[in-house]
Design a protein around this nucleic acid. Structure first.
Lengths: 342, 342
DNA sequence: TAAAGAAACTAAAGCGGTTTAGTTAATTTG
DNA sequence: CAAATTAACTAAACCGCTTTAGTTTCTTTA
């Protein structure tokens, strides 16, 4: 059986309270007793039971992180940002992943709340069938929470980039290259990000007097396979093929590039492809990807900082909306439009 | 303040014990009381405090996962395997990452033990300065533990592939392609995996009467940048350049391919490159990588299953060494040796 | 129908800490 | 030097559960 605070108290001939005081570095005992206790602690290699502490203090020094996909390279960097910050500040992080399912998201929130995490970092889904009742409850209770993204009609702490503007920039870039038939492999069921990016896409077209062609907008899952399939389908038609496509994220773009490759449509000579996220691999891929940089690590970092700030000040209701800077990363997957293409 | 078991007990006019019994689905109360309690629980939306439960039962239903690098794509899949299995079995996972530092590994082990995780999944480092005293202690206490890999001289539960054999296979493949001057960008400071792979490399050369050339073996960090630098250095010499190189992992291989690309040395025409891990991206990279498949997801899964099995049977000392199957994945980064090369 | 046995129920102790309130000892102060 | 402060220390309550041991109630059984 592990050694407890009572054991130490007896061994050092003091009360449990005294031991607790020195454990927490609080005033209230003489230097003599303090060092006596410290000695016996060291001697018996005692370390306090965190669970018991949590029960008594009502804080667990842990937070929950709910991503959408655990093995998505974008979230890998978010996760690292969260983890690094937590480690520094003495928090642990409990893993969660909704795997793009709303019911799971809810389940996980409840599971983590059951574990009494001190706060929650959520990358929220947003489907038609989303149930955000839980958000209302958390907000009502002023529960420490920051969203990695946002949810319509809910004012919470959040950190994100301006997805609308970023998409607008991406598409504007394609337009500047001379493209007029620009498609969008859009995200959709899985988040507001998708919707915002779609809006940015449309706005950029509008502002440049380009018509929105419904056939040029198709929803995909945010992964390589889905990008591949959508690409094959889109480019298997014969007329009016797009000369550029703006992808929901880099994974989709990679899938698309592969589809085009398989169909012997050269990128970027015949079609330009632009991604989103700037995941680590996007520069090493067959055609190094032009993309929008999401500062994933920094998002994780500042979201965590904000969350722990809120945990530390349970009184005041924070409501910070942090917008990080995005950036267009130009690599090799986009080229100037030239006449006489597919 | 949150509602507690005592509140429910009062509201339902029964004892705390009765509520506890129905919470845990144990026999000892009448159907009438059971449903009465269930009703009030639902009515007041009560959910038990997991921390208190943990303290009372001495189990937290959580495990710790210690990876080497949190944003390494290999670990991403391990993590997913672990997470999926844990979710299914009602466990949560606490994140840990040694970031290739032995001191950190130790710190994290202690931090997680402090949080009273029920078991530990560790991808262990193995440096000269490793301190494995902690392993001895855990082993002595029969603490639930499984290594994702192994540590010299310690018999623990573990799951891994046969790194020696896998490396042997990789190098044999290169030899079969006709290569004689085969280099190795070796891992080293970070794990036994590196050493085992190096041994496999040497053995394969030996068995084929190829001399081991010290200049052909250089240690690298397991990342793209390090592979890139080592590649530049190795191929900036003028004589006796290798015609093939076996890389510690895919990241290193990707770095190397990039270095070669920059030096205008065509892959695989002039030099063949083989990786290790088969990370998700290795097939989408400039030159789709020939590599050794590590079943990362399955490793995570079976390690977790084993760990939880051990947690469930605290009596018997398990000592299972699970060796997973590896596989050579042939893609485009290796070619037959032809005379007249660099 | 009384005695024995089983089922339903609960009081209280315990998990390992923190914290409040109170006691004792040491130090100031008038 | 007695009274008042202050510092050091500790007993006991508490956090929210589980579990043991014991009590009460209900069935059996002879």
């Amino acid at each position: 059986m592990r050694i407890t605070i009572s054991d130490i108290a007896k061994l050092a001939n003091v009360s449990k309270s005294a031991v607790s005081i020195v454990l927490n570095n609080k005033p209230g005992v003489s230097d003599k007793t303090r060092s006596k206790v410290l000695e016996t602690i060291k001697k018996y290699n005692y370390s306090p039971n965190h669970i018991a502490q949590s029960l008594a203090t009502r804080e667990t020094k842990s937070i929950g992180l709910i991503t959408k996909e655990i093995n998505n390279p974008y979230f890998a960097n978010v996760m690292k940002g969260v983890y690094d910050t937590c480690s520094q500040l003495g928090y642990s992080v409990l893993l969660g992943s909704s795997e793009l399912s709303c019911e799971k998201e809810l389940e996980i929130v409840n599971a983590l709340l059951g574990k009494r995490v001190d706060g929650l970092l959520i990358s929220p889904l947003q489907n038609e069938d989303s149930n955000f009742a839980y958000l209302s409850n958390l907000l009502r209770d002023n529960y420490p929470l920051v969203l990695l993204g946002e949810v319509k009609n809910y004012a919470t702490n959040s950190v994100d980039i301006d997805n609308f503007a970023a998409a607008y920039d991406a598409v504007s870039y394609l337009i500047k290259l001379g493209h007029k038939r620009i498609a969008h492999l859009a995200g959709s069921v899985h988040s507001l990000h998708g919707q915002k990016r779609l809006e940015g896409y449309k706005q950029a077209l509008n502002d440049n007097n380009l018509a929105i062609n419904k056939n040029y907008i198709v929803s995909v899952e945010p992964n390589i396979a889905s990008g591949f399939n959508a690409g094959r389908q889109m480019f298997s038609k014969v007329v009016e093929l797009p000369t550029a496509v703006f992808c929901y994220n880099d994974l989709v773009a990679i899938g698309l590039v592969n589809a085009l490759h398989q169909m012997r449509i050269p990128v970027p000579e015949k079609v330009s492809v632009i991604g989103f996220d700037n995941i680590d691999f996007s520069q090493y891929v067959q055609i190094p990807l032009t993309t929008i940089q999401m500062p994933a690590y920094e998002i994780g970092k500042s979201a965590t900082t904000l969350l722990i700030k809120q945990i530390a000040s349970p009184g005041d209701v924070l409501n910070e909306k942090i917008i990080m800077r995005h950036e267009l990363i130009v690599r090799n997957s986009c080229a100037k439009y030239k006449k006489g293409r597919a």
